[in-house]
């Protein structure tokens, strides 16, 4: 009996040992109270539609940011901004932050130009992405990588 129990525990230990490493290496799963992944954010906003990569979005971000706490980001979208054709929303994501969402801006034709400028925190070297919703319901996306020398979170 004792021998049998010993083998059982040995087997259980082997299983746990096999599971734990896969868990800890499981992608770069975000943690924390307000964690939100890039894919999760995209799916929530687009409702499963795949955004099209577009050159209409001009994303201005420094290629190398010395200080991750303050990274200026400007998103400009080519659009006439008329009642029939305008940019409905601009979203900025820091794809590897704990909570990827930075700003969601909802525009109206009264803006005249579809531009959003702000400053974000980046936890490390990553891509900054801009998702744009047009008035006809289509989604455009563009991204650029930013090298961060000193992280800005924590």
């Amino acid at each position: 009996m004792q021998r049998r129990d010993f083998i059982k525990t040995l087997g259980a230990a082997a299983v746990i040992g096999a599971v734990i490493p896969t868990m800890s290496f499981a992608a770069d799963a975000p943690k924390g109270p307000n964690a939100f992944s890039y894919k999760q954010a995209l799916d929530t906003i687009t409702g499963g539609k795949t955004p099209v990569k577009s050159d209409k979005i001009h994303l201005k971000v420094p290629e190398i940011a010395e200080n991750g706490a303050v990274v200026p980001v400007t998103v400009e979208v080519d659009s006439p901004m008329t009642e029939s054709d305008y940019v409905k929303a601009i979203y900025i994501f820091a794809t590897k932050n704990n909570n990827v969402r930075c700003v969601a801006m909802h525009l109206t034709p009264a803006n005249g130009k579809a531009i959003l400028g702000t400053r974000v925190k980046l936890g490390g070297t990553q891509d900054v992405a801009a998702l744009v919703e047009m008035s006809d319901g289509s989604f455009l996306v563009n991204s650029q990588s930013v090298k961060v020398t000193i992280g800005g979170c924590g």
């Binding site: 307000n34 990274v71 909570n99 801006m105 959003l116 702000t118 400053r119």
Partner: peptide
């Protein structure tokens, strides 16, 4: 009296934030 732009903001925005928009 008319809301021209609204924003949802999260914690990834820098300390002492700046928001730039355009307006007609």
């Amino acid at each position: 009296g008319k809301i021209i732009t609204s924003m949802n903001v999260w914690e990834s925005v820098s300390v002492n934030p700046v928001f730039t928009i355009y307006m007609k």
